[in-house]
Design a protein around this nucleic acid. Structure first.
Lengths: 416, 416
DNA sequence: AGTTTTATATTACTATTTTATCAAATTGAT
DNA sequence: ATCAATTTGATAAAATAGTAATATAAAACT
């Protein structure tokens, strides 16, 4: 009601906050003993005996044996029961729909990939629901055991409303309340999230961000996406569009971007921008290995070709990618000076860049970011397992679950 | 110990969190009834009866009469006892030390201003302690009733350690643990904060930010300072230097800034930058009203002169200030696309800008920020009462107090 | 075998919020 | 005037969740 006032804490919220804290800690650092959990959450051992007993009763946590101990009684280690429930991760990309079934540890059990252009049934939602049903059927899992669904898609969208707004090039996905639609269709809680945000979250849970609670994630996949994690939580801003590093400007007199801004990082560092730079240089007479592969017209040149060529020591490709990295680095410098994160995580496709290209990104940050912020900054590369996109989506579902542990503990059977 | 793990909530923290929430809510929205407070904090009326009784007992809150009510029993309104305790706000600027004594509603009772260059005693700390003592003596207040001290200073500094690092041009203030020194000297809790951050907080408590929990504050006073408030809290980042809008770049090929970055907003929009632009234009033959005031050499031209001239419709001054506003606007666009705030608050000296200059800032934001973020964005001007700088510092002290209410409720008498 | 150390379980307890109920105060209709 | 309705605020018993103290278990070391 009064959003601007500060909320108090009642006993119920204490209970659920503590269960959420314990679950999250266990997930991220398992196996842990009760004692470990008590230390990490700042709760007492007695409280942890109680809370853990609830989790054991609910069958979501198990004792996995004994830990090492220099002296004294050996701790009983605890871990999630990986297959107590299963998570569905759905990623909508510009080219395909990927659906993954995951256990509670985010291990992929089954993956289904379908071209986004190929429709099944009446509309995009029908297609999606059909594919989800198909994926679950193929996996052989009982719907009863699927506890949450995460959906990631390129923006713009509203995670809170679960609504896709107006994705470029996909008019029939416009203004669809995808979250509620999926949730109602399967009677399973569902969350919709920006794809880069979902991946940022995945880095936090099981990738390069495990050690950090405050970081900026960027990926250069289809467009330049990014996400910010603050205090271990996705930071989405007041209207849900925060963290658009790709649409910060590094040159206010630069070319106009589709977003309305001028000189966006995306204009210099995204895949299409990189391809365009190579084409321009080639048209201006620069020689490149890429002509050996694609002919003199560079037919069908892609971002991947440029990355591949750079690994074959093609000077033009290396030069263009380094320049893109410097542009991205400059965008990150601005983000660092505003957000002062513990780490920068470089996501998909950046992980395939040559080291010397990434080094020029690091160099820009070292030289240009505020020294106090740059000094302790970690710049690391993604460590997400495949299928990365669906994992990110499933991770959003996991995050939703662990933040609302009654979804796990006080579960009423679902209806497929 | 394990900073990366999520903290649990114990019952003690519930108690103090709730008291903090109630105090903060009451401070910001007083007068409120117990019922109002219950609604706003999401606690039960019974709990509020109890908590308010504690505050009444401690003498920090009082009943101020009855509120209006359509029907039913009239609510008893509650408010802070303004003079139950007093706060000290100390601002160190590049030119002077201002010390203000404030009541709990941040009304200024007494203000003392002293040139920073004039020393009293051995060193800068001696001078400061002497001036604080003097200010309190002049105010006639008993040291016993001074409950907290806030100190604001230009960065770089560490609020957590209460340490000033290396302020440009003030070598003898370097690496002074000013917070602890002042706290020990007077046995009163003291907090050190970046001046722009303190002012951002003040806007949140009693200025243009009262209605917002997420905003970016910028001021163009001595340098281009800024602060970010997220979820009603000052956001300081992982090393404490977050929110440096002035040191984000709008042109990666721009001139080098002292901070190491290139093309910082500060290089285009700060007072010195504006003065320099006017000088350059004048040297290039542009006519300006300023020569009427300062002679043809523009001796002693200041930022204030330029602002004054703009109000006298001097075309050059207007042009330069508008250009500065566009540069600042571009920096804010980047901040908006990263942070997605509810509001931008324009602080000191910007409040003296001509409307058409600020309008060009607004225009840049409207045209360039991500539409979804820009649509609901409020761009407002500071509403801090004078003495603004000392008020900001006092506000930091107030914020520290209300976040740790046992400083108010379980107070042991101080020793001057 | 006995001591020390560490982990976990148990029990009784404490602090705080909460539920339920009641009293007080006001409006307005009858 | 009286009564019903409405809202605020007070009170006391109840519920809840975490906690301190203590006991027990299990291992290492001497």
């Amino acid at each position: 009601m009064h959003r601007s006032s500060r909320q108090g804490t009642n006993l119920q919220s204490v209970k659920w906050q503590n269960r959420a804290a314990v679950l999250e800690t266990l997930w991220r650092f398992q196996p842990l003993s009760r004692r470990d959990l008590a230390r990490r959450t700042d709760l007492t051992p007695a409280t942890l005996t109680n809370i853990v007993a609830e989790f054991l009763d609910a069958g979501i946590v198990q004792e996995t044996g004994f830990g090492e101990q220099r002296t004294g009684r050996r701790p009983t280690m605890l871990a999630f029961v990986p297959d107590c429930y299963f998570l569905l991760g759905v990623n909508l990309s510009r080219t395909e729909i990927s659906i993954g079934l995951f256990d509670m540890r985010l291990n992929a059990l089954h993956v289904l990939v379908h071209p986004i252009a190929v429709r099944i049934g009446d509309g995009p939602v029908d297609t999606l629901l059909h594919l989800i049903r198909q994926a679950v059927a193929e996996s052989g899992l009982d719907w009863e055991r699927i506890i949450a669904i995460g959906i990631s898609a390129p923006g713009p969208l509203s995670g809170q409303e679960g609504m896709i707004y107006a994705p470029p090039h996909f008019p029939d996905w416009s203004y669809l309340p995808l979250g509620p639609l999926v949730q109602q269709a399967f009677n399973v809680p569902a969350w919709l999230e920006n794809d880069a945000n979902a991946n940022a979250l995945a880095e936090h849970w099981l990738g390069a961000g495990r050690a950090f609670n405050n970081f900026v994630y960027v990926e250069n996949h289809s467009g330049l996406g990014s996400g910010i994690v603050l205090n271990g939580q996705l930071f989405t801003g007041s209207t849900g569009v925060a963290a658009e590093v790709g649409h910060t400007s590094i040159d206010h007199h630069g070319p106009r971007c589709a977003c309305g801004n001028y000189g966006c990082v995306e204009m210099y560092a995204s895949g299409p921008a990189i391809v365009e730079r190579v084409r321009q240089a080639h048209a201006a007479g620069r020689r490149t290995l890429l002509t050996d592969w694609l002919g003199d017209a560079l037919d069908g040149l892609t971002f991947d070709h440029v990355i591949d060529a750079s690994h074959q020591d093609d000077p033009l490709s290396i030069e263009v990618l380094c320049e893109a990295c410097r542009a991205l680095g400059q965008g990150l410098v601005n983000a660092i000076n505003l957000v002062d994160p513990e780490a920068i995580i470089l996501g998909h496709k950046l992980h395939r860049f040559r080291d010397d290209c990434l080094e020029s990104l690091r160099e820009v940050i070292r030289q240009r970011a505020i020294p106090q912020a740059a000094a302790r900054l970690n710049i690391v590369v993604t460590q997400l397992p495949e299928p990365a996109a669906a994992t990110g989506a499933a991770c959003r579902a996991l995050s939703g679950l662990l933040q609302d542990p009654h979804l796990l503990l006080e579960r009423t059977p679902a209806v497929g």
